[in-house]
Amino acid sequence: MGAAAQCLLAACLPLRYALLPAPALLLCRLVKTLLMTAGLVPHDLAGDVIHGKYTAQVPGPNGAMPASPSQNGVCLLMLGARSSHPLGTFSPGLRKVGDYLEKMRASLEDGNKNGSNGFLCQTTFLSANERYTGSQLMMLCYFRSADDAHAFAHGPLHREAWAWWFDITKKYPHLSIRHELYDVPAGHWENVYVNSHPAGLAGMNALVRCNGGWTRPLFDASKMNLRTTMGRLGHTDGTDNEKYGPEPY
């Protein structure tokens, strides 16, 4: 689109004026980058970064503080959609798939306001390295249990989307969808984040009761049993890595 706009300017304006937008844009971005690097203006991408080493723990349904790491189970639902049509993202039917995914995401978020649907959070990204074109849209949804994921799958919105899919599979054979579901019991999952914004399970909306108030269930992973993978699984006291030498964090 930028190249097309530049061609249009070159066709309509004298060359010395038509060439001005590109260097002007580059100069603006360079100045902004230098100002952010010098700390004179806020960094656009660093505002929500939590510095240090931390881990996310799933609180109880009523916000109860976990008594041990990985005390509660978690369910991961991976949704994927791709088009194999020459038109790529403009192929027939693909926008409808995207619309249904967005509606389902919004439905899960809205239903989670009272915590009744067991939905924790979701993360969306593109799987762009498997093919040189036709990226796959991916959505990771975290639930408290597989029962919560199944309850949503049998809800009215997902059933509507499923009925639409069965109606168009022969008409749009270039569209593909998939899902993977992993029901992970307590004591069999862990996570750690270093200087990271809250992503993945760390971005969950579930809160935990702490000191008479409510806070996000993110904990310092540089101390006690949360220091190591086996500790965050709830299997050790966090000293199992001492034989390998001092830890960087």
Rank of each mutant, 00 (worst) to 15 (best):
residue 140 L to F: 14
residue 223 K to W: 03
residue 62 N to H: 02
residue 112 N to T: 12
residue 124 T to W: 06
residue 105 R to I: 06
residue 175 L to M: 04
residue 61 P to Q: 01
residue 141 C to G: 04
residue 119 F to I: 11
residue 116 S to M: 08
residue 181 L to Y: 05
residue 118 G to W: 07
residue 138 M to E: 15
residue 91 S to D: 00
residue 221 A to D: 10
residue 247 E to H: 13
residue 19 L to C: 07
residue 37 T to R: 12
residue 157 L to S: 09
residue 207 L to R: 13
residue 29 R to P: 02
residue 221 A to F: 13
residue 72 N to C: 03
residue 54 Y to R: 01
residue 23 P to S: 07
residue 221 A to I: 09
residue 68 S to Y: 10
residue 146 A to I: 03
residue 209 R to Q: 11
residue 216 R to D: 01
residue 6 Q to W: 03
residue 155 G to M: 00
residue 145 S to Q: 08
residue 35 L to K: 11
residue 239 T to E: 05
residue 241 N to T: 05
residue 240 D to A: 09
residue 56 A to V: 11
residue 105 R to K: 13
residue 192 V to R: 08
residue 196 S to V: 07
residue 18 A to M: 11
residue 149 A to G: 04
residue 200 G to Q: 11
residue 204 M to Q: 15
residue 110 D to A: 14
residue 23 P to G: 14
residue 237 D to Q: 12
residue 28 C to A: 15
residue 226 L to Q: 00
residue 47 G to Q: 13
residue 145 S to R: 10
residue 158 H to E: 01
residue 32 K to F: 07
residue 113 K to T: 12
residue 232 R to F: 14
residue 241 N to E: 08
residue 184 V to A: 04
residue 191 N to R: 07
residue 207 L to T: 13
residue 89 T to M: 06
residue 16 R to Y: 12
residue 150 H to M: 11
residue 199 A to W: 15
residue 121 C to W: 14
residue 153 A to L: 09
